[in-house]
Design a protein around this nucleic acid. Structure first.
Lengths: 189, 189
DNA sequence: CCTCCACTAGAACATCGTTCTAGTCACAAC
DNA sequence: GTTGTGACTAGAACGATGTTCTAGTGGAGG
C-alpha cells in the first residue's frame, strides 16, 4: 500500500533528465510536464514546486555519494582524506550530477524556491562542524575557525569539479589523491 | 561630446544598489527602473539586457580589486601569495560586492543572459593559465594541470568568501595569510 | 521651417512558475 | 445500487518577469 506512485517517479526521472541536460534554472515545468507525461496539476499535487523537485533529486544524488563516507572510528587524517577523495572520485565519475549539485548549492542561498534545500544544507554543515570540532579536541588538526577549515579542505575539490570533464577512473584516483593530501596538509596540526 | 550620459550612469548605480541588496537574480528590471528614474525603453537603449548591466558592473568591480595585482617581476611565491591574499582581503572588506561577483561567476556558465560575461571570464582564465605555465617553466611550482592548480590555489578563498561575514582589517589580514600560505604549500615544487 | 536622429516613454508580448476550478475514477458505506 | 469520499488528473487562468514594439519628444544642422 505504500508504493511510490508511478507518476511521482516519472516526474522525478523526467526532471532529473532535464536538469542534467539544461541545468536547474533553464528547465521549465513545461519541459518536465512533456517528458514525464504528467500534467501541471499532477506535478503540483506531488511536489510543492520546482524547488521541491530539486530537493528530492538532491537528496537522491547525495545518497549515491554517501557510500564514500568515512567510518567515524578512523583517524582524522583518514577521515579527511577519504571525504575529499570520495567527493572528487564521485564527482569525476558523475560530472553532470556533480554540476547539478553545485548549481543547486549556489542557488540555494539566493532562491526562495530552494528554501527547504537551504535548510538541508545547513544541517549537513552543522554535522560537519561538529565532526571537525571533535578532531580539534584531540589535537589532530589546527585550531582554525570551522569556515576557514572547511574552505581549505573542500574548496579546491568543489572548485575543480565545477569545470571538470569526464575522467577515466585511474586518472580520477590520482587527481583525488592530490586534493586529499593538499586538504590534509592544510589543516593538520 | 563623449561624456557618459547621466542616464546610463544612473542606471548602473541603481542596478548596483539593487544587485548588492537583493542579488542579481532577485532584482527585476522594474526595480532598476524605479530606483534610477529611467524608463524600460531607456534601459534597453543603453544595455542589451539585464546581463549586459551585470557585465558592466562586474568589470567595474574587478577594476577596484585589480590594484592588488602582483607585479609580474616578483617571485612565484610572492605572486601567488599576493593573488590569494589580495582576493581574500578585498573580499572581506567588500563582502556584498564579493558575493555579487561570486553569484555572477556561478550563473555565467548556465545563464544565456550572461554570455558576454562568460567570454570575459574565459579570457581572464587564459591569462592566468599562461602566467602559471611560465612559473612551471622556471621550476618554481609543481607540474600540475592548470585546472587542478587553479582549484588548489583559489578554491579555498572563493569557497570561504561565499559565506564570509564582514571582518575587521586585522582579522582579515590573518585569515588572508592562512589562505595564502596554504595555496603556496599546495603548488610549490 | 524642415529633417533627422539620439533618446525617452510606456503599452504590448512571450514565457515562466504557480494556483484555481472542474472533473474522473476506485472503492467503501449503507 | 446508490451515494460519498478522497486521491489523483487535467488544463485554463493568473501574476510576474525580461524583452520588444510603437509612438513620440526635443534639439542640432540644412
Amino acid at each position: 500500500m505504500n508504493e511510490i506512485p508511478d507518476r511521482r517517479r516519472a516526474i522525478l526521472d523526467a526532471a532529473l533528465a532535464c536538469f542534467l541536460e539544461h541545468g536547474y534554472r533553464a528547465t521549465s515545468i513545461a519541459q518536465i510536464r512533456q517528458k514525464s507525461g504528467a500534467s501541471t496539476g499532477s506535478i503540483y499535487h506531488f511536489f510543492s514546486g520546482k524547488g521541491a523537485i530539486a530537493e528530492a533529486l538532491f537528496r537522491q544524488a547525495i545518497a549515491g555519494w554517501a557510500e564514500f563516507a568515512p567510518s567515524p572510528t578512523a583517524s582524522a587524517e583518514e577521515r579527511i582524506k577519504a571525504s575529499v577523495s570520495g567527493l572528487v572520485i564521485w564527482g569525476l565519475a558523475h560530472p553532470d550530477q556533480s554540476r547539478l549539485l553545485d548549481e543547486l548549492r549556489s542557488l540555494a542561498p539566493l532562491d526562495d524556491e530552494l528554501k527547504d534545500l537551504r535548510a538541508f544544507l545547513a544541517s549537513g554543515h552543522d554535522t560537519a562542524a561538529a565532526a571537525f570540532a571533535e578532531m580539534q579536541a584531540t589535537g589532530a588538526v589546527k585550531k582554525l575557525p570551522f569556515p576557514v577549515a572547511h574552505a581549505l579542505m573542500l574548496g579546491p575539490a568543489y572548485s575543480y569539479l565545477r569545470s571538470a570533464a569526464p575522467t577515466p577512473p585511474d586518472a580520477a584516483q590520482r587527481i583525488a589523491a592530490v586534493f586529499a593530501t593538499a586538504a590534509w596538509q592544510s589543516v593538520k596540526a
